[in-house]
Design a protein around this nucleic acid. Structure first.
Lengths: 177, 177
DNA sequence: CTTATATTTCTGTCATTACAGAAACCATAA
DNA sequence: TTATGGTTTCTGTAATGACAGAAATATAAG
């Protein structure tokens, strides 16, 4: 397998984007490589293609698997694991959002609820308590929306997505546009 | 001004969350402080309350202002700037998404479009070109949805948000639920 | 102009993180 | 058992980012 300049640039830009969104650059690069690779790759091949240390590739793959972005599979007659990115982009986005919500959003939400209770027992001024409540309410509202939407069948989700702004037409009491 | 334990914990948790989402911890803490502060704070007060170096507070405030999350205002009889967080949570979320899209999403999208053109000129295999195209299509689809939805009046956005999953009822051909 | 406040730009330090490579360890196919 | 591939853990190194403090510069009030 060989990386053309376009493929290298894809990997580099994908890596940059990952770095800005909280995952580290190498992990994002490994994912980019698997994402455009026409066939499953072994850890060794990834090392070689991306010039990364074996241990980092191993850990990166573990991370990507725990995020649900990468699956491993065996090849007949080969003892090594081979890895692929989740092929369907919609699945990919969905999965990433799901795990990041569980890892990074819900724990904050829970912690802030705890803070809210704590605020009742110390000298926190009422205005501040009101601000905390407001913040939590909004976070809850978005989370409820997310939970609701994720419970819908995929076909409906896609329909709503493709509908875009024209969704307004179907809303009960949309004031105007 | 004094920070109760609940307020300190709010700031700490908000800071942790920020750190996981690509902004650095101090910036997120400054924002958390301004977000729950009942009145505008000067840079000096922020330094003292959060135990941060003056220069970092200055730069953090600049960053938050450029993200649109914090506004500065003058107080009568005081020469110093005083800072407040955008009060409305919905505005806040909207603004953050808007600037992060412009800074971190659109540039990647553009770069990948460039990569796609480049792939036509080098030896990139057709399957890989297809994967790149798929990726771009999905990114475009989400971005179009975002653009559309942001063009709707706030009242309609809120209605759709509160509607949550019940949106399916109003969709033209939702297969089932 | 002078003075107080703000900001910007440096310097060097410290902590954290990514990283490579080695070694130890585990699992499993032959 | 042996050989191979995989993971884990340890080391030291390099790069990054946060930080304090000082100095230079900018801004605006009196």
């Amino acid at each position: 397998m060989h990386l053309t300049p376009a493929m290298q640039n894809f990997i580099l830009h994908w890596g940059d984007m990952g770095a800005k969104w909280g995952t580290n650059r190498s992990v994002a690069q490994i994912h980019a490589l698997l994402h455009i690779a026409p066939e499953p790759l072994s850890a060794d091949q990834i090392c070689e293609l991306l010039n990364l240390a074996r241990s980092n590739v191993s850990n990166g793959l573990k991370e990507l698997q725990s995020l649900g972005m990468v699956k491993s599979q065996r090849k007949l007659g080969d003892r090594r694991d081979h890895f692929t990115s989740v092929r369907d982009m919609f699945d990919l986005v969905t999965t990433v959002i799901k795990t990041r919500r569980e890892r990074e959003y819900l724990p904050t939400l829970q912690a802030l609820e705890e803070v809210q209770r704590e605020a009742e027992t110390d000298a926190t001024p009422p205005e501040v308590k009101a601000r905390i409540a407001e913040t939590l309410d909004t976070m809850q509202m978005f989370d409820n929306w997310y939970t609701d939407v994720m419970a819908l069948p995929r076909s409906v989700q896609m329909a709503a997505l493709k509908l875009g702004g024209r969704i307004a037409r179907f809303l009960p009491k949309g004031k105007d546009s």
